[in-house]
């Protein structure tokens, strides 16, 4: 038994590794291609800036984003406050800068929820097939039969407003497309020689899925997750705007717009800048995603 196991590992691992390194090489050439197109290069640059801003927020932000100074409220953009101040005298630029952390948190956590769930559901459904597959795919169908904002709206309504719940709700709505993709990929690998070989050598299903199938699905799943980022950002902002997402005083951009809206007629900067930030970041992810799609689907080039 032990020998068998060892043997099976020997048989599968080099194959998997070879495929993995191939995937890695593909990723590198993908990057090169993305930088070649002006639109996706723009996306990449903006996302890099976003990452740096979030990382260096305390250094970049000129003020503490939560310091209230009612005497300094609703100041228009000036040298001291590039983006002006809000109704409580907080510096809007600093709030937007710190807001990048919230956006990134949302994106990261959603990916961490969505990737594994989608991967597990998709690979197991694809691998086992049968009623389990049917059952799982029906569930994904149900989730897919809603526009993501409406479904996450419904989930947040059920869970209660707040950043955490908004993240969970978005996560709950974002996994089905990933599961679909992972299942499709699994179906193509399932019959591969090395999988059959390790199955014949007695490797458990769990082992095969985790060690052999999942790594193979990973690159395409990663790409798909990137593609959904723009939607995630817009949904989070929409929830914030409706008062169901991040709650004040968190400097979430959508929530900033929701509060700024009350002052919009005289104080345009309260909504203009956070909205611009959302637009920029979501545009960057969309452009990147578009580039990725093109790069991966040569037919459309």
């Amino acid at each position: 038994m032990t020998a068998n196991l060892l043997h099976s590992q020997d048989a599968t691992m080099p194959e998997t590794r070879r495929k993995q390194s191939l995937a890695l090489r593909q990723l590198v050439s993908l990057f090169r291609e993305l930088l070649g197109s002006p639109t996706s290069a723009f996306g990449l640059v903006v996302i890099t800036i976003l990452l740096l801003t979030a990382l260096l927020a305390p250094v970049i932000a000129p003020y503490d984003p939560n310091i209230i100074n009612l005497g300094n409220a609703l100041q228009p953009p000036s040298a001291a406050h590039w983006f002006g101040t809000d109704e409580l005298g907080r510096d809007i630029l600093s709030r937007i800068v710190y807001g990048t952390r919230i956006s990134l948190t949302i994106i990261t956590i959603v990916s961490v929820i969505v990737g594994p769930i989608g991967l597990i559901v998709g690979t197991t459904a694809g691998y086992f097939g049968g009623w389990y597959d049917t059952f799982m795919m029906r569930i994904t169908d149900i989730f897919l039969s809603f526009p993501s904002l409406i479904l996450s709206l419904a989930f947040v309504a059920a869970l209660g407003a707040g950043l955490e719940n908004a993240i969970i709700a978005i996560g709950l709505t974002a996994w089905p497309p990933i599961a679909r993709l992972a299942r499709a990929e699994t179906l193509t690998f399932r019959g591969a020689d090395y999988i059959s070989a390790s199955r014949m050598q007695g490797a458990s299903a769990l082992r095969i899925i985790v060690k052999s199938i999942m790594p193979m699905c990973l690159p395409s799943v990663l790409v798909r997750v990137t593609l959904s980022m723009a939607t995630v950002i817009l949904t989070a902002a929409g929830l914030g705007f409706l008062g169901l997402g991040a709650q004040p005083p968190l400097p979430e951009w959508g929530a900033m717009i929701a509060t700024g809206r009350r002052y919009m007629l005289d104080n345009w900067w309260l909504v203009a800048f956070p909205g611009g930030a959302i637009l920029l970041v979501s545009l960057a992810f969309n452009l990147l995603g578009d580039g990725l799609r093109d790069a991966l689907d040569p037919k459309q080039r």
């Binding site: 939560n66 209230i68 009612l70 109704e87 409580l88 008062g243 709650q247 004040p248 005083p249 509060t259 009350r262």
Partner: peptide
């Protein structure tokens, strides 16, 4: 989460 409470609370 409505005026004036959103302003009163942080103050």
């Amino acid at each position: 989460s409505d005026t004036p409470f959103v302003n009163l609370a942080p103050a």
